[in-house]
Nucleic acid binder design. Structure first.
Lengths: 149, 149
DNA sequence: GCAATATAGTGAAGGTACTTCATGATGAAC
DNA sequence: GTTCATCATGAAGTACCTTCACTATATTGC
């Protein structure tokens, strides 16, 4: 069998589609969506943020963040608070419930990764990541959102 | 450097997000969206189809296919025609313009794949695809939409 | 032949994710 | 202290996609 570039590209999309679907399903069981879970995830990683910062981290409009936070706040995942120095800004932070959920989802994400990729030879995994990185470098990374170490 | 499973999972999503964005952008330049281009692509692969078949191929509701085909027909990419034996059914086929566009997009997709993955060692590419396949097998393939040979 | 039932497509209505534009409130700069 | 940038949000709108009800046709069983 000849492994060509087109197959590789196909696999990326197939993998993403399938994994994305599973993720969406898991989130839906908690009453969350992909976009809203993104807010929780960013806050979990970086701590309380102003909505403007959230919009940059999530690469969406500030207006959309307002809507996401509205819903998340109504459901008790996050809370709006005052910014210590800037009275225009709203500081969004995880509630206790939100923090617990975010931590648990992060754990589950890592577990899932290990279930999916964990038993593969480390060299194969290394090659997989290297190929992905090579392609990402080629199309230009947008921003290193988290540490890669 | 330790390559772990979580990194691999991250790369899949990052790659998909970035490549998906580029693809969407390229489609938008032609006045197409991801969903509508899916119709063209399926018709290009399989020839004229009844809307019901399209909905199965695209994994969406028949009602949504109606909308997609409405738009594509209005823009001249596809045409509705009679089914030879079933008068309930609508046979959707590519117009000449649609066929040309689909063929060209398919070519461009292959070119893009080669630009992105083409210069990597064949063994690395093989490993990449093998890892992807392994994961896909694990989560259960939905349906082999096209030949993998 | 004909009633019962299934199937193909579509109108109506609605939900979610996201956008742009205008605006009020505040901060920063000169 | 006026001017200009910035934060968040209301209003309005677009795109994607769904469910439900309905019509037209096909199929099945008698």
């Amino acid at each position: 069998m000849l492994t060509d570039a087109v197959t590789a590209l196909d696999r990326v999309f197939e993998l993403a589609t399938r994994l994305g679907g599973l993720m969406e399903q898991a989130l839906a069981e908690r009453g969350l969506t992909t976009a809203r879970s993104g807010v929780l995830f960013v806050l979990h990683e970086r701590g309380p943020l102003v909505q403007r910062e959230l919009s940059e981290a999530l690469r969406c409009t500030p207006r959309h963040v307002t809507g996401l936070v509205d819903t998340l706040e109504a459901q008790g995942w996050v809370a709006r608070g005052r910014h210590p120095t800037d009275r225009r800004a709203t500081l969004v932070s995880l509630t206790e419930r939100g923090a617990t959920a975010a931590a648990r989802m992060d754990t589950e994400r890592r577990q899932a990764a290990h279930e999916l990729f964990g038993d593969l030879p480390a060299t194969d995994l290394g090659t997989f990541v290297a190929v992905a990185d090579r392609v990402l470098d080629r199309i230009g990374r947008p921003a290193p959102s988290d540490a890669d170490g």
